[in-house]
Design a protein around this nucleic acid. Structure first.
Lengths: 198, 198
DNA sequence: TTAATATTTGGTACGCGTTCTATATTATTA
DNA sequence: TAATAATATAGAACGCGTACCAAATATTAA
């Protein structure tokens, strides 16, 4: 189809640039003042555009908050790596990683809320938790740990998925139901790990 | 201390009555029009009081939404019971219950969001997920199932907690990250169960 | 340049949760 | 009855997410 007259559609690069400008500023606000301070109106004002312009580039606020996930997950990964430095045994590395994972989310409840509980209840539709490969890598590191412990394991993927969702579940429960006397996180993590250690 | 003059404090019964009146009406709205339709302003208008009066009885909107949890959990329990009717073997009952639990939350994503993801991200404080005993019972039924399968099990509580949080985690992951190719829920549930079957 | 089209902007609007203040209402004791 | 204290109310205000719309602006093909 031949190009007609008129202003051309924004290039992918332009769109990307604007989105990341907004995203970076959102990150800055959140780091200094917390999530509550991140608002579309404020973002627009401080970045120098109209609020509606943001809606031309993002689906909504949740779409902006996704930009913060990467930062949080990176922080989490660093935290885990730090704790793993002195651990050599493969089995113990897996255990320590799982434990560090849970601990991170328990120690940073606001981060947990941002990443795992940021879907608006008022929305009926299931808004997708879209992740790029870099982001996913922060979760899939567990695949590597599992493979180290069980090189013969036939279904590493299922073990990984079960472990990850289980660990997230532990964090969710301890975060959102702090008054219920849960068994301690370490014990639950260990028991969960026992399910994938054949 | 002697009573002084002045209007006496509301009795517990009065407080309870008002709270349940609001709660019941919220339930009605939500059943007909969904969660998005439940708002404090509307609640006040339809129940015949000022919006501020509600704030005298509830901490905030989340505090009201808690009234809907009981309803959702009851619904979930009924669903599980129905599916368990024809299952006699204890081990299979546990498995079927766990599966039905996960399935329920996957089939009713809006209910899942209400119960497990209704904490406002903007709030820094961890608002407690307070449950009464009736509500808790809907979760603790798993203790019974586990005990039936493993009468000798020394730490039923830990197994129960690990199972519940793990199942919730599976539901959370599949609900909030539907685009990620998770292993199927049944497989993950089974693997999770293997961790408590010693 | 002109016409066509994409995008941005500003303004207005709705309903929301929440907070504040000032005023009224109520039920009790003195 | 009068004073008093608990409670309820109305009203305004703030900032929010989101939607709609008309006007302005930018960028291209003809």
């Amino acid at each position: 189809m031949a190009r007609t007259a008129g202003r051309p559609t924004r290039s992918k690069a332009e769109i990307q640039e604007f989105r990341s400008k907004i995203g970076k500023h959102a990150l800055e606000i959140y780091r200094v003042e917390g999530f509550g301070a991140v608002s579309i109106r404020r973002l627009a004002k401080e970045v120098g555009c109209a609020p509606m312009t943001i809606y031309a580039h993002f689906e909504g606020k949740t779409d902006i908050l996704r930009f913060l996930w990467a930062d949080v997950l990176r922080d989490m990964s660093h935290d885990i790596e730090k704790k793993l430095k002195s651990v050599v045994d493969a089995r113990e590395r897996l255990r320590a990683a799982a434990q560090a994972f849970v601990d991170y989310w328990i120690d940073h409840p606001d981060h947990f809320r941002l990443v795992f509980m940021s879907n608006d209840v008022t929305r009926a539709d299931v808004s997708a938790f879209i992740m790029d490969e870099d982001t996913l890598a922060h979760f899939l590191m567990f695949s590597g740990f599992i493979r180290e412990v069980h090189p013969e394991e036939h279904d590493v993927k299922m073990s990984t998925d079960t472990l990850i969702s289980g660990l997230i579940g532990i964090a969710l429960c301890m975060n959102t139901m702090p008054d219920y006397p849960w068994a301690d996180a370490a014990s639950m993590t260990n028991q969960l790990l026992s399910s994938i250690s054949t």
